[in-house]
């Protein structure tokens, strides 16, 4: 019973807690891994050596050009109605302020609609967004486009309520996008608590003044790499089941959850299969992406480089929403492929994780799925994910070794069986 052997090794056997222990050593040694940083270079070298030491096949690096942005020193101070330090995290790609900072009155809004309605009030002000958290997908547009929308109505900077479902005064960073025809203004996230406080003050008609200083700088694109390792297939080696997570992170916390957990259960899947002496018919390929946080930069270049072989890609898998209690897999593919995946999930009955959901997702595998390759993502109990996401709280303390064992078991069983079946998934 191959599925049981994989599960036993991952959950009860010698491999239990291995992905957790490996991740802890990695993040405690390297720290966070921002695109373009020396830390990310060190992380890639570390993984290259670790994967070779693990005895995997074809360990190699594939060059990628990635954005290089550094936040520099930054702070905000509320001057009126009273002095209070405002905790901020500059947003990726933001420009800095002049050296003396920007001091301006604040306009608080709760939505883009309100901003547009009150456009005449925004000129020369710092716009503070206090948008409610609906869902990440819905609310993240304020982080992505808050600066552009504020600049369009003449604001001098924007401060955006963090995209977080819970807060203990924690700002959460993330990437934001300027538009070429709109002036660039500095932009940062603030804690939910400060956004709500300023909204209350504004609703009482209280004047708010803030000084904002940000030393953010954008440098020329940097050299980086996607990190690749394989177990080469014994019958159809050119055909590939791809398992993945991203190695880069934000420059806060340790990037243990986003996406250290996803990267290390993906490595663990190959380790488990190798430890059991299993040899799938197709190649199992581990890819640790670079530059994901800047919008899937590494995975886009990987797709461009390898799309000529798209018909050899059987299934693409990504874990990038945490490695909490696994609930099953999200899957995108034709009905015939879904029916097969449902049967494969039944192999996970010993750990009672057999559900197959709709909509496989993941920035790094989207290109393949849009082109018709079946795709799967790990669905876990990610209720707490956005508590820690892109914040100083994303540390090893978030991770649970027992849950990582279960995630690794799901990842290993599914990837191995699909790679070993006589035929590829129907498209």
């Amino acid at each position: 019973s191959i599925a049981s052997a994989i599960i036993d090794l991952a959950v009860h056997g010698k491999a239990q807690n291995r992905s957790y222990d490996r991740l802890a050593l990695f993040v405690d040694t390297i720290g966070n891994r921002m695109s373009g940083s020396k830390n990310l270079d060190l992380a890639i070298k570390y993984m290259y050596n670790a994967l070779q030491k693990d005895g995997l096949d074809n360990v190699h690096l594939e060059p990628v050009k990635v954005p290089h942005w550094e936040r520099g020193e930054e702070f905000a101070m509320m001057l009126e109605p009273r002095n209070q330090s405002i905790s901020i995290l500059g947003l990726g790609s933001s420009i800095g302020t002049p050296p003396q900072g920007i001091t301006a009155d604040v306009l608080v809004v709760t939505s883009f609609t309100e901003l547009h309605r009150r456009a005449p009030e925004a000129r020369g002000k710092i716009v503070v967004y206090n948008q409610p958290f609906v869902s990440y997908e819905e609310t993240v547009k304020y982080r992505s486009f808050g600066a552009v929308e504020a600049a369009k109505v003449g604001a001098v900077a924007s401060l955006i309520r963090s995209i977080a479902s819970f807060s203990i005064y924690s700002p959460h960073t993330g990437w934001q996008d300027y538009q070429t025809d709109v002036p660039k203004i500095p932009t940062a996230c603030i804690a939910v608590e400060d956004a709500e406080m300023m909204a209350r003050m504004a609703s009482r008609g209280t004047k708010i003044v803030i000084t904002l200083k940000m030393g953010a700088k954008t440098y020329p694109d940097a050299n980086s790499f996607n990190t690749v390792a394989e177990i080469v297939g014994n019958k159809y080696p050119e055909q590939v089941v791809l398992v993945s997570g991203h190695l880069d992170s934000w420059d806060v916390g340790q990037g243990a959850m986003d996406d250290g957990g996803g990267a290390f259960i993906s490595w663990e899947a190959l380790s488990i299969i190798k430890d059991l002496g299993l040899s799938p018919k197709r190649t199992l390929r581990l890819v640790l992406w670079t530059g994901e946080e800047q919008g899937g930069v590494g995975s886009r270049q990987y797709y461009e480089l390898h799309k000529e072989n798209i018909f050899d890609f059987d299934l693409v898998m990504e874990s990038d929403t945490g490695t909490f209690m696994p609930l099953g897999l999200q899957f995108t593919g034709r009905d015939k492929a879904r029916a097969i995946m449902k049967e494969v999930m039944m192999l996970l009955q010993p750990i009672n994780i057999t559900s197959l959901y709709e909509h496989g997702e993941g920035t790094d595998i989207d290109y393949w799925m849009e082109a018709g390759v079946p795709g799967a993502s790990l669905l876990d109990d990610f209720q707490k994910y956005f508590w820690f996401h892109h914040s100083q709280g994303d540390t090893m303390t978030v991770q649970d070794p027992a849950l990582m064992n279960l995630c690794a078991a799901v990842w290993a069983v599914v990837s191995y069986v699909i790679a070993d079946m006589e035929e590829m998934l129907p498209r």
Partner: peptide, 21 residues
């Protein structure tokens, strides 16, 4: 290449998958 042959029935595929359990 054994790609999308569709010569096997779903029952055949189910049996193959059961072989891993």
């Amino acid at each position: 290449k054994h790609i999308h042959k569709n010569v096997r029935t779903f029952e055949d595929i189910k049996k193959e998958i059961c072989g891993y359990s």
